[in-house]
Design a protein around this nucleic acid. Structure first.
Lengths: 325, 325
DNA sequence: CTGTTAGCGCATTCAT
DNA sequence: ATGAATGCGCTAACAG
């Protein structure tokens, strides 16, 4: 900036003013801008941030697995909102390791991000308490905060699972199995609860032997489905707790040439072109990101007295789509 | 830091040293760390960056569409390498708008990122020339730089397309259509070139009427495929320039109940469970991100005299996989 | 081993 | 309308 000032024959202060669009005489402004151009000068945002004592104009996004389309769409949604406000997104991938999450958040705070959106990796997150964060607002996405007060954007896991299961039951199926993640995760537990509730509402009780709560990816789901569908007393339909599981289940159905109906959380491409009827719980992953970003921006604008309104929670709706014969 | 120093009864300098793990007497260190803990103090990385005169320890990643799994995987790969080096990733989505790309890069430079990885949105990018970037290294991913010298990580678009097409031809198909993006993009042009080369090497020439270079998403590809496959003289196979196109083509095949063989760039889930033989060009999108990050880190470590070695270019290999009957 | 001085690049405040 | 002094939080360089 000194160089620019020297070249334009003014003080650094004037350059600063020009760059901030403050009142400066037209001729001076021209000279300064010319010097800026000639020198290829760009204001140092780091110094500016320090001087202004403001946060850095970046928001942190910490997810468990960017490779999962759900989270990359969430990121896209958050980015689009951040972009509207001229904020940059700093990305962190935890690979579901709480330790990584702790370090990442720590680092983001040190970098003075304006706020953080987190898809928590574990059930406990003392490192995300307002105290530890020292005033930096945080919004939870997908999984709710436990033991601490913070805003959150969730998906209607329970309602979606219940509705999809009810749909399958309404088509006459009386033996609907469950394939899904271990219940440690909030979403997994909620989806199982929805599956169960739909049964209860229909006056039924799922058979425990049709429930598999171990699978967590395509291949383990496929194996579990093979086991479930191979026996004598196989269920005629399966509810799957997410799209990885549904895909695994379909692999088994396909290999066995079975006609098992499938229902599952998360929509996926080609769901309408399979050999068996498929019912999916669809929702807008980008919307989760957008809402999280909006909640966060709202807190940011409230300023340091952010604890003003107590924790808000919003639930992104789901819709059930029935594909196939 | 002053507060911590006061509380520990030392100078700020000593606190700084403790936090940097420099030689400090054990007892003093303990007192300082205690004060840090009690006050919940965290070093201000913004001030630190400014003082050290170093870049910010962040690398920028600018992509055209984060919603596309290819780019989110690329991001994941880049993040994993950055993470090893303790660098953060700042994300920008251009939605393929050159204007956005320009602004984003500008902003990232102002924030003093260590370097930038860009998937360019357009054919021209004067805003990415070393001059404009003022010493910040840049690496191109997916599309090569035009008119400027810079490192790049590409995919073997030509080779993959040629090999997949050759595979289809070797199975006896003599009328292989082409469905794909407009040739404005480097990748699209290269893939078409591969399709063409495979024909030439087999002593054949593709019929122009079987070539559709307009489609750019699933539905336009589906429409084009419907048109192509509906006529009398329909091709018996189609080469599709990416997975969106392949999916659209399969939709048409499925609706028509046709038995057209498909080949396409990009692997996709369920490709092995379709009703027609499918040949895909598979490659590791994460690897593109990893290599881009490594090239970038290499330049960063070289320091300001980064123009030392001239532009390097690396090509991620592809492999052809044949699914189905 | 620890403290003092000075300055990274910028903008607020007060002068002119 | 412009400039000079001052300090944001931190650390290199130099004392002691």
């Amino acid at each position: 900036m000194r160089d620019v000032a020297a070249r334009a024959g003014v003080s650094a202060m004037t350059v600063s003013r020009v760059l901030k669009d403050e009142r400066v005489s037209a001729t001076t402004r021209e000279r300064v801008l010319a010097a800026v151009r000639e020198l290829g000068y760009r204001r140092n945002e780091v110094a500016r941030t320090l001087r202004l004592g403001r946060p850095s104009g970046m928001i942190g996004l910490v997810v468990t697995n960017l490779g999962n389309p759900f989270y990359s769409r969430l990121a896209l949604g958050a980015e689009s909102v951040a972009e509207e406000y001229g904020l940059r997104l700093v990305l962190g991938n935890t690979a579901s390791q709480v330790q990584r999450e702790r370090e990442l958040v720590e680092d983001l705070i040190s970098r003075r991000v304006d706020g953080v959106i987190v898809v928590p990796a574990g059930a406990a997150h003392p490192h995300l308490s307002p105290a530890t964060l020292g005033g930096t607002p945080v919004v939870f996405a997908s999984q709710p905060p436990s033991e601490i007060e913070a805003d959150a954007v969730l998906v209607d896991d329970f309602g979606g699972a219940r509705e999809a299961t009810a749909q399958v039951l309404s088509e006459g199926h009386r033996s609907v199995g469950f394939l899904g993640n271990p219940p440690g995760l909030f979403t997994a537990a909620e989806r199982f609860r929805g599956y169960w509730a739909a049964h209860e509402e229909a006056g039924l009780t799922p058979h425990e032997e049709w429930v598999r709560r171990g699978p967590h990816d395509i291949s383990t789901a496929e194996a579990a489905a093979m086991e479930l569908l191979d026996g004598e007393d196989a269920p005629t339909a399966l509810f799957c707790s997410n799209n990885r599981i549904t895909l695994g289940a379909y692999r088994a159905v396909w290999r066995l040439g079975a006609s098992t109906a499938l229902a599952g959380f998360d929509d996926f491409e080609m769901a309408d072109m399979l050999q068996v009827p498929v019912t999916v719980v669809s929702y807008d992953a980008e919307e989760v990101g957008r809402r999280a970003a909006r909640l966060l921006l709202d807190r940011i604008e409230q300023g340091p007295d952010a604890s003003a309104g107590s924790a808000r929670r919003t639930v992104v709706p789901t819709s059930v789509v029935r594909y196939g014969a």
